[in-house]
Design a protein around this nucleic acid. Structure first.
Length: 289
DNA sequence: AGGTTGACCTGGACGC
DNA sequence: TGCGTCCAGGTCAACC
């Protein structure tokens, strides 16, 4: 599932391949658009824009788009006014790929962006949980929206105080709280389970009942597991691939996620599966208190 | 308002 | 072989 490390990997890969390129032609699939903004409006917004940069915010991929230009590729270092943003959410099975135009078009391809360099950006999403959105930031349009930012805080940079305050007084399970994107943005089912294992905390514990020491252990565990996963290109548990179509390797490092019945890597006890907040949840009954 | 549940969607795994 | 059923989960709407 694309969570923070997978989205980060894709965003970096796309940025490395298309930064400075220009969008020439935009195509959106006709059947049941995965679009927040109408496909026609999005296509119009993207058309002929310079791609200034691509980055991640929470689980969203944000493509910063410059002014419409007809000239040659902008030289690096030139200040570019951001006039729009293309927001891509991969949902569960979404892929954002940079390909050559002759690459076979996969089933469930919902968007194709032809670039000046000849490359193509493609959005493929079999399960259609992904979302595409365009934010118009140009004043000229008279309807400029504020720049996109994920609602929750970033787990990689959040400090001890902020982290603790997110859960204070909350009665829901800590696992469910970690998945709440309005508190922190980017954590999904895999890294919630993995960070709770590394912190030695049971997923059903009430968030507000964790001690300050436990919360700090969890904050560090989460940060470490996310960094580790990014280094390995994310987890390919279903069909996740990066911008080049390459699988990640962090699934080989999972301690609990989808290891129901298998021995715990620390103590050997069988990993249990329960349901918390409607999500399948994996933990070690011996190592997690 | 905080918290919980189910719908959305399709492919793959599994049972008979 | 083939059909039916269940499961995966990010997010949102609806409900308590």
């Amino acid at each position: 599932m694309p969570e923070l490390p997978e989205v980060e990997t894709v965003a970096r890969g796309v940025d490395a391949r298309v930064r400075g390129d220009r969008i020439e032609h935009v195509w959106f699939g006709s059947h049941r658009e995965p679009c927040k903004t109408a496909a026609a409006v999005q296509a119009e917004g993207l058309q002929r824009r310079r791609i200034v940069s691509v980055h991640r915010s929470g689980k969203h991929i944000v493509m910063e788009l410059g002014t419409r230009t007809e000239g040659t590729v902008a030289s690096s270092g030139v200040e570019q006014k951001i006039e729009g943003q293309w927001i891509v959410h991969l949902g569960m099975t979404g892929r954002l790929l940079v390909t050559t135009p002759d690459a076979p078009v996969a089933k469930h391809t919902h968007a194709r962006l032809t670039l000046e360099s000849g490359r193509e950006i493609r959005f493929v999403d079999p399960r259609r949980f992904g979302r595409l959105d365009f934010h118009d930031l140009s004043d000229a349009a008279g309807k400029a929206e504020i720049a996109f930012a994920a609602k929750g805080l970033e787990p990689l940079t959040i400090g001890p105080e902020e982290f603790a305050s997110l859960f204070r007084g909350r009665k829901l399970a800590i696992k469910a709280a970690l998945l709440n994107q309005t508190l922190m943005a980017g954590v999904g089912n895999i890294y919630a389970d993995e960070s709770l294992f590394r912190a030695g905390i049971r997923p059903r514990r009430r968030a507000g009942r964790l001690t300050r020491a436990e919360l700090e252990k969890l904050r560090r565990a989460l940060r470490e597991v996310l960094h580790h996963a990014i280094r390995l290109g994310g987890s390919s548990v279903s069909d996740y691939v990066d911008a080049e179509g390459v699988r990640g390797f962090f699934q080989l490092k999972h301690c609990v996620y989808q290891r129901t019945g298998e021995p715990c890597r620390k103590c050997g006890e069988a990993i249990k599966r329960i349901v918390v907040g409607g999500r399948s949840t994996h933990y070690c009954p011996h190592c997690q208190k």
